[in-house]
């Protein structure tokens, strides 16, 4: 009986501390929103190394990438999490778009095939996330159904969400439009590429999972 109680307490305490120490923070969004650029920014800031390659051609990230044990600090607060960079979620993938971007036919077809698998994996991983930063391109229309479906699915799973309105360094960026589209969420305008306002995003992460 004593050993059962002991095991129960160990499991309970273990779960609490393991969960705290291994929070899975996902980066989700449509292709080319800047998820990997943000992942690289976070990893460079706190680990001193990048996470993955970035490109102007959509679907550069076609596999789930994980960087474990990232510790970020803000004042006296400290937050530890595993960062999960996911492939962009799309409803269509046309290899001819990759041809237009200059890829050979063979490479374009392979990229398209890998991209479709990447989308499926990204959706499957939704259930494993403890918190998610949805990375949107603030120069684009925020009302796209992919954005709404991603955020709706996170809400249905009760996963905390923070929206990063990325690419604020570009003239066409419109953070207010993103805020208007998702008024119930905290929206932080950033430029992951240049590190603009990323400190505010880190503060937002403390509110999200801290």
């Amino acid at each position: 009986m004593i050993s059962i109680i002991k095991n129960f307490i160990n499991k309970l305490l273990g779960d609490i501390f393991t969960k705290k120490g291994h929070v899975k923070l996902g980066l989700y969004g449509p292709p080319n929103g800047g998820k990997t650029t943000l992942a690289n920014r976070i990893c460079t800031d706190w680990l001193g190394e990048e996470m993955g390659s970035v490109s102007n051609v959509a679907h550069e990230t076609r596999e789930i990438q994980i960087k474990e044990q990232i510790n970020i600090k803000s004042g006296e607060k400290e937050l530890s999490f595993n960062l999960v960079d996911t492939p962009g979620i799309a409803t269509k993938i046309d290899y001819e778009e990759f041809l237009k971007a200059g890829l050979s036919e063979k490479k374009a077809k392979t990229r398209a095939k890998e991209a479709t698998k990447g989308v499926i994996d990204a959706i499957k991983w939704l259930d494993d996330m403890d918190a998610v930063v949805v990375v949107l391109d603030s120069t684009k229309d925020p009302y796209s159904q992919v954005n709404i479906t991603i955020i709706g699915n996170l809400a249905a799973r009760k996963i905390p969400v923070l929206i990063a309105a990325n690419k604020t360094d570009l003239k066409k960026a419109n953070i207010k439009k993103v805020q208007a589209a998702f008024p119930q969420y905290s929206v932080i305008g950033i430029s992951a590429k240049y590190g603009k306002n990323v400190d505010d995003l880190y503060k937002g992460l403390f509110d999200l999972v801290g």
Binding site: I93, V119, K124, L126, T149, A156
Partner: peptide, 14 residues
């Protein structure tokens, strides 16, 4: 349903 929308995207990709 929201979950069905995500499943629709998955099925489409397949």
């Amino acid at each position: 349903k929201k979950e069905e929308e995500a499943e629709l995207i998955q099925a489409t990709m397949e």
